[in-house]
Design a protein around this nucleic acid. Structure first.
Lengths: 231, 231
DNA sequence: CAATTTTTATGATTAAAATCATACAACAAG
DNA sequence: CTTGTTGTATGATTTTAATCATAAAAATTG
């Protein structure tokens, strides 16, 4: 049950994409820490000090609206980078919050070191650019979905994305346990609406849910919900 | 009234960010062409062949939903890059469509040359990455807005963004003429709803509209519409 | 393990925004 | 310059999803 308190210096986005010669510098400059379940790692509006990586665990990246609404932008799990939206700006603020969904081992490097890394590793800069391009493509798809796709489709899409990111475990259910509220925030809808929509999906035999454990039983039907009906 | 048919090799994102020594290569590889008003430059799903820049004019980047709905992701005007979401992938497809809103002078480079440019110009890669980071931050804000902000706020935000991007001309109105339908597609709402909301804003003295010419008369009031009321 | 907090569950009501319907104006094209 | 198309204008109706209200489980914690 003893957990690691240090990362292995080779799994995260940073260590994978920079040249080997730079790894000792990373090791010297990184700071590992454990974030407890529910712990806010940084909050929207906080001054930017550095960039984060997930070595183990799962972190939600979210953006608030009012006191009790939020949109979950993405989940950062093993290897993922977060807090990277603000680069090249001095004294900027994080545009999003990051909260651990489970106990997570986080790796942190400050901004100066991160910028040095970019300078020394053109390959890393290139990979980061590709990653951004991919995220942007995805973000634009989600924007379109939020604007035009009904909630049921968005929930279906959310489940598909979760399955893609987290895979399925031995019992066949998507390997992440989210509260219905978090699923709702990820789909961009309210808890109640998502609750109803999930029930419909269960009724229709598209998914099976046992509390937070959700299995997709009819991938085609789920996928069909994400398509506009007119095609 | 004679218009340019060639760009000046110095104004667009590409020419501004790469080293001077590379400019002759750009000049040799670029292809300029004029896109007429309403002309579809490429369409969602088309195979990717290269990257585009706007030398003059205005291009909407949009994503369809069904036969008669779309979300306008952004407008690309003087100097802007578009069609850049898909990089590092061979044989991918454009995830969005690009349509000229007015007669525009476009500059095109094929994918091979663009990737060569990235290799030879680490500074360009870096700038492109920063640009992506900025766009992503903006996209995430828009996602949150689409999920939680009412239409009126989204229209207000759309007008503010348009003013930021296009400025105001001599008569004080935002220097872009959009159909109400395009404004609606940009705000992620229907024509009718936007029509009503714009009328409200006029009534409330926030903006003045003379057909497609829109002036912002009360910036504070407009801005207030984009904030969540609970703060 | 009792107490508190969080999460799930579900019906009833309301509000927001989409859809439908229709008319007219402006503009482009033959 | 008349005809078709595109954009504007607006009321009525319907749909979707949010809000409100309340209860019961479940999970966490002192």
């Amino acid at each position: 049950m003893k957990k690691n308190t240090q990362c292995d210096n080779q799994s995260c986005f940073l260590c994978r994409s920079c040249i080997k010669e730079w790894l000792p510098a990373v090791a010297a400059n990184k700071r590992n820490f454990v974030a407890k379940k529910g712990q806010v790692i940084f909050s929207e509006g906080d001054p930017v000090t550095g960039i984060y990586f997930v070595y183990e665990g799962n972190v939600k990246v979210h953006k608030k609206w009012g006191p009790d609404k939020e949109l979950i932008i993405r989940f950062a799990n093993k290897g993922a980078i977060f807090g990277h939206r603000v680069l090249g700006k001095q004294a900027a603020n994080y545009p999003i919050s990051a909260t651990a969904l489970e106990e997570s081992l986080i790796c942190y490097v400050n901004m100066d070191f991160f910028e040095a890394t970019l300078k020394v590793n053109p390959g890393f800069t290139y990979d980061l650019m590709l990653f951004f391009a991919e995220e942007l493509k995805e973000a634009e798809r989600k924007m379109r979905n939020l604007a035009h796709m009904p909630v049921k489709g968005r929930v279906a899409q959310a489940l598909i994305s979760l399955k893609e990111q987290f895979g399925t475990n031995g019992e066949g259910h998507v390997d992440i346990e989210l509260t219905r509220q978090d699923l709702a925030s990820y789909a961009g809808a309210t808890y109640e609406t998502v609750f109803r929509v999930v029930n419909e999906m269960i009724q229709e035999g598209t998914i099976i849910a046992n509390g937070k454990k959700i299995s997709i039983t009819d991938t085609d039907k789920l996928f069909a919900l994400t398509q506009d009906s007119t095609l």
